[in-house]
Amino acid sequence: MNLAASLARRWEHFEHAADMGVRGIGATREAAFEEAALALCAVITDPALVRPDILFEVDCHATDDELLLVDWLNALISEMSAHRMIFSKFAVTISDGRLHGRAWGEIAVPARHHPAVEVKGATLTELKVFQNPDGLWTAQCVVDV
């Protein structure tokens, strides 16, 4: 990854009346999806507190990028819930509407992670995946907490 692409990567939260918006920005669609996943986990806790020790792999398929983002985030939510995990590091590849994602994290330790809230699901609200005029990709939606 070159320096410019690395600097461009970031995640942020945006306002929603009852819940939380998660947004990933990156030089590629894949990077934006990875950053959106980090934004998702930051709703739960500070990702810097989570050791990327255990690897999970997920596969999704959708007819458009937006549903693919929802599927990706919901797959992570589901794995975190089923295995009491919190993730902090991601790698995504996308080809022909198929996403392969790797997520690293650890089993939640309330005393160390102080998780604020669990996420129920990624929604179709404010759901957007697009490339900005400056070339950067944005991937975002509201998550229900």
Binding site: L67, S81, G121, T123
Partner: peptide, 15 residues
């Protein structure tokens, strides 16, 4: 989690 998963799966399928 059970309700959340059902909501997620059917919302997606119905969409």
């Amino acid at each position: 989690g059970l309700g959340h998963q059902i909501g997620t799966e059917f919302l997606r399928e119905m969409a």
